[in-house]
Design a protein around this nucleic acid. Structure first.
Lengths: 139, 139
DNA sequence: AAAGAATTATTAGGGGCCTAACTATTTGGG
DNA sequence: CCCAAATAGTTAGGCCCCTAATAATTCTTT
């Protein structure tokens, strides 16, 4: 059962990469862009790492890629000499707008096989399983 | 909702890596070992790729790692001049036995929060969502 | 039987993720 | 005030996974 959940997770993850690659993004880069958009277009790498649930080193890599494509910019923080700020560019914001319709249509199709009640139930069960994940890493 | 499923999948995947790393394995290498065990200890790379749902190139990498640790061996196929056969070594079989108790105890704890009925329900819903995954890659 | 198509495994190169180590800066306790 | 500890970002190196290209072999088709 854990095996099937993992398999489903991996398949979804794999399909996501295909989906996002149509827009020149990856799942990680897309998530970073959305996070940035939700933060008025500016956020430090370490705060991004925390909210995305990945390491700071991973954020460095994602930002490298996004910067190369001009979807994001880096600048030094004015308050903290150590800090940096990642800034969403106009091009980056446009990219998100461009993919919105297709993205949400596909998400809709993904969960369309379930009723609203079933979705709620599923999320509840998923939540409880998620809590058990700690058992794998305990000790 | 797809987001949460993906997040759960990723978290489980991440936790799995931690779990398997205790035995010097990764999720992929463990799955390959089990697959091999279920096939009387011998199987070709391409059949492994198919049953594991990864590319042949990935199997090459996994076998490289397992061979380096002496858990697996390669030999040429006798029937097909192109083919190879991956063979589970005694050490590989032993590794699986060594981790069995801990592995199943943790799996048990993972799904322990749900009743048998709930697990069945969850798997059913998961199955139906899995069918929707195609929507992400369609066209 | 011979040429072209398909299949097998591998290599090369890429992306995403990680941990550990490094540099620069800020913070906080004595 | 000063020095140790914490924090910020990056780099280096590793693993897993992918696609595309490669060489060897087998199959198919005429």
């Amino acid at each position: 059962m854990a095996v099937r959940l993992m398999a489903a997770g991996v398949r979804l993850d794999r399909a996501s990469e295909v989906h996002f690659s149509r827009f020149g993004l990856s799942t990680g880069r897309y998530r970073l862009l959305v996070d940035l958009e939700d933060s008025d277009g500016e956020k430090s790498p370490s705060r991004l790492a925390k909210s995305l649930g990945v390491s700071r080193a991973t954020v460095t890599g994602l930002v490298d890629g996004l910067e190369r494509e001009g979807l994001v910019t880096r600048r030094a923080s004015t308050e903290d000499g150590r800090g940096a700020v990642v800034v969403l560019t106009a091009r980056g914001a446009q990219r998100l707008r461009d993919m919105a319709a297709d993205h949400f249509a596909r998400l809709q199709a993904l969960v369309g096989g379930l009723t609203a009640d079933e979705r709620g139930l599923f999320l509840d069960l998923l939540e409880r399983i998620t809590q058990g994940i700690g058992a794998l890493t305990a000790e």
